[in-house]
Design a protein around this nucleic acid. Structure first.
Lengths: 394, 394
DNA sequence: ATCGTTAGCTCAACTTACTTGAGCTATCAA
DNA sequence: TTGATAGCTCAAGTAAGTTGAGCTAACGAT
């Protein structure tokens, strides 16, 4: 969640260096392995400057030498890539009844995942839950707990008191302070707070199907349906951090207008399955139902196509993204079915001849998507250059 | 239109200075009048650095001293403000049958407006039209043509070959090169190209109701209906420059689903007025019709409310803007009527207690909105700091 | 196989622009 | 009247990027 007044600040030597470090790191991440000269060309810096920064990064253990390459003429290129063990990011997902945790390395690979059953109905409860999970995570880092570069926290939005009212899953309101500031203060460390869809969207960028993409949308199946939009490499959070409330979108279904979330969401699916005992239907179970072509599930799928198609069309024309990703707490086969069935509009700015990406693709799925995304927020933040809002060094 | 690969580049001394100049200029613009110390505090620079930059800006004639202020203790503050005559920006709007031109000073005030009847159906025709208009504009600058800081061009989108097909108003396709690059090359000067809605959105920021706002949406009545979104002070252009095609949004109207543009647009209004001879109904005429409570116009207004309300709700929940602005080629009284009649959704992230801005407000209206916006693009660009995509110094 | 060209990289000197801290001054408050 | 405060400037200091010479490894043409 971006600070309300996203103020652009001035540049000085120190901030320039920080910015350039992140430019270089970003290049290395994108290229997987790359030499100094190429980084210099791509970033508009001199090779000397890049050399100095590379030396720093090597010294900090953030990158590693990755062998020479002698494809071209001239001296063989010394290549570098991110050092997975250069730092770890913890992601914590707060739910009313449980807390999930994940640990990512710098390359975005998952190191550990944890779940705790705790009640987090109060603000203090959230804090305690995070502290508990943080302790569990650092425990896993027996090597060096200082390598934990930051904490990403996912909480159900929207933040602040808005017209989107509390479903059962909603957490206590953070009226006065931003959760980000409050938690940063209490935990005495940089904390990034986002909603599940935004975190998941960044997750795809750090280690998923959005690697190398700068502008895309992520449709996230949580309990409802969330939307995370990345534009020019930055999250589109909105002025108050609540952008992407796509659930309320009015879409056609069976000849009438409905709210998107009333059909296209886990909640709606569970309803459609007629789960009287309202047991949580887990992803694995849904996958099996799909394999068995469960009639209720198939009926829901058929019903969901039209509204989902309308939503996709809306997203394409409003955001003109490189691609739209579908992911979250749904099994792969269900997501694939949806993707295969969506009717992509002809009348769309995304209907172009030349495409490097499909208009719709599947992202990470499963229960932990947002949690991993929370950790990915931190990795992404650490690798994204910005001479701009530097709330706190991470 | 942002370059396709919006690559973040490294910082060095020169670029830092350029960035900081723009930070300082931006502060001065926002504050109207402000002293060095306050700029320094706000931008994270030392007063000395700000002093040096101020000296530069004074020397370049971009700012002027604006008297002392002795409100507080200590030495009286020497205040500065933008020098309106510090530079001029030309905006050129390309239409199939005509070219509009406008000249803005640094503060965003309109210096001159021109219209030319020319046919611009070919790429070369567009170029000639721009050159003609540019000549007319520089003619107006008898003082010093070098003070023309840049050229903003508005062309009907979408750009590139997409599924949104050519209405009559559409211009020749620019498949191979971006119009921005092509024109910059041909005209040998920095050119910013945008669609009408985006230009109009920035127009509001430079000298309109969006001054001081960082995140807002602008619904623009052109021939169809356009959308310009500003997020964190930057235009949300989409990956291919075609974001904001809101005209295709499916919305409810009279119990069925329609395309937003089929009701909420000038074109639809003209149709509703039953203009058999299809004469262009100008803004002034529409205003008179409204004053006379013309039944056909009132019927159209009534019909437009529901779809417009749905669109506003969608924008609020997807973008979470500070406000939504309604403007373009409609008279003030019609826009005000629409704004007064829109049913603002309760179930919206914008439905918050604390608001500094109304959820919906009127922006600049009239035929020249986009043209003035085109010039505003240049002013905005000149005053917006960015150590990032510096396609061409402006 | 030799040798010139090419390209990556480093070293050392140079440049730019920001920061720091002392010092000056105008204003308010005690 | 005097001390505190705040804005501003001067001059020295510093961080970080650039420049250009120079080294080296590999390709490719003779």
């Amino acid at each position: 969640m971006v600070a309300l007044s996203d103020v652009v600040i001035g540049a000085n030597a120190g901030r320039s260096r920080g910015h350039n470090r992140q430019v270089v790191l970003g290049r290395i991440r994108n290229a997987t392995r790359i030499g100094r000269a190429e980084i210099a060309r791509a970033s508009g810096l001199s090779t000397q400057a890049v050399s100095n920064i590379i030396a720093d990064l090597l010294n900090d253990g953030l990158i590693v030498e990755q062998g020479h390459r002698a494809a071209t003429r001239g001296v063989p290129v010394v290549q570098y890539s991110l050092n997975p063990d250069g730092g770890y990011a913890a992601g914590i997902e707060i739910r009313p009844d449980a807390v999930f945790g994940a640990l990512l390395d710098l390359c975005g690979a998952s190191i550990a995942q944890e779940r705790l059953q705790v009640s987090t109905t109060s603000r203090q409860g959230v804090l305690r839950a995070i502290q508990q999970m943080q302790a569990k995570m650092t425990e896993r880092l027996d090597c060096d707990p200082k390598r934990l570069i930051g904490l990403g926290v996912v909480m159900p939005g929207p933040f602040g008191r808005t017209g989107i009212k509390g479903c059962a899953s909603e957490l206590p309101i953070w009226d006065d302070t931003s959760p980000e500031e409050w938690l940063s203060g209490k935990l005495d460390r940089a904390v990034l707070v986002e909603n599940d869809a935004n975190a998941a969207a960044i997750g795809e960028r750090v280690s998923g199907v959005a690697q190398g993409l700068n502008s895309y949308a992520f449709l996230y199946f949580g309990s409802g349906l969330g939307l995370g939009v990345v534009h020019n490499g930055r999250l589109m959070t909105g002025a108050f951090g609540n952008a992407g409330e796509i659930g309320t979108l009015q879409v056609p279904c069976d000849g009438q207008l409905i709210m998107l979330e009333d059909v296209v969401s886990r909640r709606a699916l569970v309803d459609a399955l007629g789960n009287a005992e309202s047991m949580p239907v887990d992803v694995e179970h849904l996958s099996q139902l799909y394999e068995a072509r469960d009639p209720l599930l198939m009926a829901w799928l058929n019903r969901a196509i039209a509204p989902l198609s309308a939503a996709v069309s809306t997203l394409e024309n409003l955001f003109d993204p490189q691609t739209i990703i579908l992911g979250g707490a749904m099994p792969d086969n269900v997501l694939d079915h949806l993707i295969g069935s969506v009717r992509l509009a002809k009348r769309s700015v995304s209907n172009r001849q030349i495409r490097n990406e499909p208009r719709l693709k599947r992202g990470a799925s499963g229960r932990m998507t947002a949690t991993l995304g929370a950790a990915a927020l931190v990795v992404n933040h650490a690798l994204t250059p910005k001479i701009a809002p530097q709330s706190k060094e991470i």
